[in-house]
């Protein structure tokens, strides 16, 4: 009999920090006067996220995140909001790149720059859930690009 494939660790997917952000999301109240509204939608899972941004001096002054979907997609949005407020577009794109790379490498190390987002490393072992984790980041990047191009609203389908 062939041995079953090694099982990804359930506890690594649902780290307590992820569950905490899912149950009590941060920066959840939609900004009332955003410079940019970026929506992201994954029709396959039904995950929806909306990120609202304000900018000052080339940096993200404030950000709100809300949506509906699985715990991974919603916790990802909540946790990125803590990390990116106050940073400029280049810094945020670098972080997004590091996050996306981490999601592609189940055996890799979590870069220091991502701080608490290290909690998502276990998601890389569940290929079906990687898109849930990256949706908020890709939506945020769309928002940054939209702002640079002078636009105010953008929507993506993953």
């Amino acid at each position: 009999m062939p041995q079953p494939v090694p099982e990804p660790e359930f506890d690594e997917l649902y780290r307590e920090l992820i569950l905490d952000h899912y149950r009590s999301p941060r920066h959840h109240e939609p900004l009332s006067e955003p410079d940019v509204v970026a929506e992201g939608y994954n029709p396959l899972c039904g995950d929806e996220v909306e990120i609202r941004l304000t900018f000052s001096n080339g940096a993200v002054r404030d950000l709100s995140f809300h949506g509906r979907g699985c715990s991974i997609s919603q916790a990802s949005g909540s946790m990125l909001s803590d990390l990116v407020i106050g940073k400029n577009a280049d810094e945020i794109r670098t972080l997004s790149g590091l996050f996306t790379t981490m999601m592609r490498e189940p055996e890799g190390e979590s870069p220091e720059e991502l701080g608490d987002l290290e909690a998502f490393q276990g998601v890389a072992k569940f290929p079906a859930r990687v898109k849930c984790a990256t949706l908020a980041w890709h939506t945020l990047e769309d928002g940054l690009t939209q702002h640079e191009q002078g636009g105010h609203a953008v929507r993506r389908e993953e």
Binding site: F10, Y14, C45, C70, S71, I72, F126, A128, R129
Partner: peptide, 9 residues
């Protein structure tokens, strides 16, 4: 409002 993917897992 638990997402079915979380429930399924």
């Amino acid at each position: 409002d638990i997402h079915p993917h979380d429930l399924g897992t």
